[in-house]
């Protein structure tokens, strides 16, 4: 059974008449490793933000984690982790790594509720899992881009998400950090949590069957399962054809 079901969806940014995503249908099941590829402006990030309801779906049916995204986007976001692309935290940002990771739990907690012992434990687990214990008490703005990326991944892992969306998660990471993150993601997949990654870099994908989605101009042009080694080639050929 699919945990993400999108059927003929159209999405548009607030105040925009022209849809970014058009007539898109996609099903993602538990434990799938999904890679979304395609040229710039294909609608890849918009697709991620349609799945968690950050971008308005104007037409079609979207069901994620058992919730209708169009009606209960807020409930969907409580269960879906989303590592955003292009964040910048200035050196004066007054929050430590530990506090930022803890914020990942706030959505689950709800308004006016204080974090409990289990929330602190989940945040600590996420920090340990990503291997950033030494950064826990440092303010996030003083960290390097790669370290900030790791903190944002821990922020989302602390949420204990049912689905994990990642937008260019490897962009700031060195080779060893990439491998380390891939191992964490693979563990999540083995545990049944589907991973949906938007990326331009396909080297180092885990050696498992990949659900590959290629997009162009807001539409899916290829939706197949393939070995990890074939991903780059398929994406390149699909992009060249268009």
């Amino acid at each position: 059974m699919s945990i993400i079901e999108l059927e003929g969806i159209y999405t548009a940014y607030e105040g925009d008449d022209k849809p970014i995503i058009r007539d898109l249908t996609l099903n993602i099941g538990r434990g799938e490793y999904v890679v979304i590829g395609g040229p710039n402006s294909a609608g890849k990030t918009t697709l991620l933000e349609s799945i968690n309801g950050l971008v308005k779906i104007t037409h079609g049916r979207a069901n994620v984690c058992g919730f209708d995204v169009r009606r209960s986007g807020h409930d969907v976001r409580k269960k879906v982790g989303y590592v955003v692309q292009n964040f910048y935290f200035d050196p004066f940002t007054p929050f430590t790594t530990q506090q930022v990771v803890m914020m990942g739990r706030y959505g689950r907690l709800g308004l006016l509720k204080r974090p409990l012992e289990e929330d602190y434990k989940a945040a600590e687990r996420a920090i340990r899992l990503v291997g950033i214990e030494d950064l826990a008490q440092k303010t996030i703005g003083t960290l390097s881009g790669g370290q900030q990326q790791k903190v944002m991944i821990a922020h989302n892992l602390a949420k204990e998400p049912e689905v994990m969306l990642l937008d260019e998660p490897f962009s700031n990471l060195d080779f060893s950090a990439r491998e380390y993150l891939q191992a964490i993601l693979l563990d999540l997949v083995k545990g049944g949590t589907p991973i949906v990654i938007v990326s331009h870099a396909f080297d180092g994908l885990p050696d498992i069957r990949i659900h590959l989605v290629v997009m162009n101009e807001g539409r899916i042009t290829k939706d197949i399962c393939c070995p990890a080694q074939a991903v780059e080639d398929i994406v390149r050929k699909s992009s060249l054809k268009q």
């Binding site: 968690n52 950050l54 807020h74 409930d75 969907v76 976001r77 409580k78 269960k79 989303y82 955003v84 964040f87 914020m103 990942g104 706030y106 959505g107 689950r108 308004l111 944002m152 922020h155 989302n156 949420k159």
Partner: peptide
Amino acid sequence: KIAQASGMR
């Protein structure tokens, strides 16, 4: 945006 993405109102 990150606060919104984490499911906060």
